[in-house]
Design a protein around this nucleic acid. Structure first.
Lengths: 152, 152
DNA sequence: ATAGATATTGGCATTAAATGCCGGTACTGG
DNA sequence: CCAGTACCGGCATTTAATGCCAATATCTAT
């Protein structure tokens, strides 16, 4: 992982479908070594994958919510069950464990507030062992770059 | 935007570099109309782009923090300045406006806790007009799918 | 400083995929 | 029932990815 690898990673964070020929020119390499570096970055796990960035609203899921959840207790059984159930929920795009006041942080998409009510009542509350739920809805985006800073 | 378009979108959320031949087979189309649909989805904005999913730690930024920020006041001037400055910060990968107790929600990557201190002291506090900052560090990932649920 | 060893590069031939065009087919509205 | 529209599939062409080889740069130990 040298400066050139990180250049490649940043370029592909901006445009993950960039042709190898263009990528090679951008990082000042010829196509062959550039492609080899890319394949190595994939094989080593530095690149976990490539994903399309899809417009929520165009797809039909205009509501984006961040949900902070605390468990009642942190027994193995409750934690295990919570994480297992969360993993199966299609509406949950991401779920992280956090330091601080809340245990879990969820990124959730739904088609409307009625669907959100249904999600909380039937998908979340039925898990059991949940202490508190705090929902924030996203009503604007200031920045959405996803490109790591240079550290060279 | 029909069911087949959404199938294409979900497939590319899973693997954004999937070859058109494979994508076509997966959604039961021949390559030509499949590629045409893809280009239309890009042109219409339903696909905002493609991005590599890069391992933070492998790149050299092992710390991921979620930062909740409240402004002192919500005057046009303070809001405008805050958003302009946030947009220039390379450590901030995403920034959303939220309903509820906090005004802004930031996703931040740094190389260590010393770099985080530097970020808060010199990048955030110097903006001015900030009421409160609440940081949560991510110490585990339960789910990270990014694939929208079927709504057909 | 130098020689050997290792890793990385660039070019080229081959293979595979994307692209653009065409005719055919299903669907819609009058 | 017919005309118009939109979408599909197949094929020829262009473009990119891949794998191999020789050459160059980098690193290490003496």
């Amino acid at each position: 992982m040298d400066s050139k690898d990180r250049q490649i990673l940043r370029a592909l964070q901006q445009d993950g479908r960039m042709a190898n020929l263009e990528l090679a020119e951008r990082v000042s390499l010829s196509p062959s070594p550039c492609l080899r570096r890319l394949r190595n970055l994939e094989a080593s796990g530095a690149i976990r994958g490539f994903h399309a960035d899809v417009d929520r609203a165009a797809y039909g899921l205009p509501i984006l919510a961040f949900v902070q959840i605390r468990l009642e207790r942190h027994s193995d059984e409750i934690v295990r069950q919570f994480e297992a159930r969360i993993s199966t929920l299609a509406e949950v795009l991401e779920c992280y464990m956090l330091t601080g006041g809340t245990d879990y942080f969820l990124k959730v998409v739904v088609s409307g507030l009625d669907a959100y009510e249904d999600f909380i009542r039937h998908r979340i509350h039925t898990i059991g062992g949940i202490g508190s739920i705090d929902t924030s809805f996203v009503y604007g985006t200031v920045k959405r770059s996803g490109v790591f800073p240079r550290i060279d």
